[in-house]
Nucleic acid binder design. Structure first.
Length: 223
DNA sequence: TGCCAGGCCGGGT
DNA sequence: ACCCGGCATGGC
């Protein structure tokens, strides 16, 4: 008998939490650091991003004002380790300019905006796509937004919970429909999925679901 | 050594 | 509406 998506999605969360423990995401000391990290980690290993963040801190460049004033070539040099540094420097500049133009350079004002409106505005910034926008909203702003990434899609399509052909919004809606609307839960769940990916998914082809494989849900087993 | 990592954009079909 | 090449470093 088929197990409901709702039960499966919630059960998988419980199993991941049990296996990996609470993740305490996002790694970052401040909303700004989280926002910057969200851009720098686009298709990039977090380790490389951390070096870039350390550099920015060391050069006192990790503030809204400093990022607004810094020369783009110099910024690119500071974030070199995160890869795609030229385009990411532009993207950071776009985002900082947006924050100043739209919210007078105040993150508080920005996050006081309605979540839906802010999401649309962020998506209109060149270099900010859905995952980056949603990461900023959830981890930077504490908004109830579920972040979908490559791991989410891979793992949950393997589990048969989403289609391989599903797009971002479709996958995100499955989580909205089946999870309690809770910032803490969204935060932890996405972090756990990444942890699953980082720790397990490297072994191919099917081991990415190892921690879940054989887990019994109702009368069914995840396969 | 080659492949990949917490994407996104722009141009082409 | 998809599909693809480009963007780039550091770790294993």
């Amino acid at each position: 008998m088929a197990l409901s998506k709702e039960k499966a999605i919630n059960r998988i969360y419980d199993e991941l939490l049990r296996k990996f423990g609470s993740q305490h995401w996002w790694p970052g000391d401040s909303p700004l650091e989280i926002i910057v990290g969200a851009v720098l980690t686009q298709n990039t290993n977090w380790q490389n991003v951390e070096r870039a963040i350390v550099n920015l801190k060391k050069e006192k460049a990790l503030s809204l004002k400093a990022l607004k004033l810094i020369n783009i070539k110099r910024l690119a040099g500071l974030i070199r380790s995160s890869g795609y540094y030229n385009i990411k420097a532009k993207r950071l500049k776009n985002l900082i300019n947006f924050i100043f133009c739209e919210y007078s350079g105040s993150l508080k004002k920005m996050f006081d905006d309605s979540t839906e409106v802010l999401r649309e505005k962020l998506l209109a910034v060149n270099g900010i796509g859905k995952e980056t926008a949603d990461s900023i909203l959830l981890y930077g702003g504490g908004k109830p937004v579920f972040v979908v990434d490559a791991y989410t899609k891979r793992v949950f399509s393997r589990l048969g919970i989403v289609q391989k052909s599903s797009g971002y919004d479709e996958i995100q809606n499955i989580f909205y429909k089946n999870l309690k609307k809770d910032v803490r839960l969204y935060n932890e769940y996405h972090a756990l999925i990444v942890s699953l990916g980082k720790n397990i998914c490297k072994v191919k082809p099917a081991c990415e679901i190892c921690p879940l494989k054989g887990v019994t849900i109702g009368n069914c087993q995840l396969a």
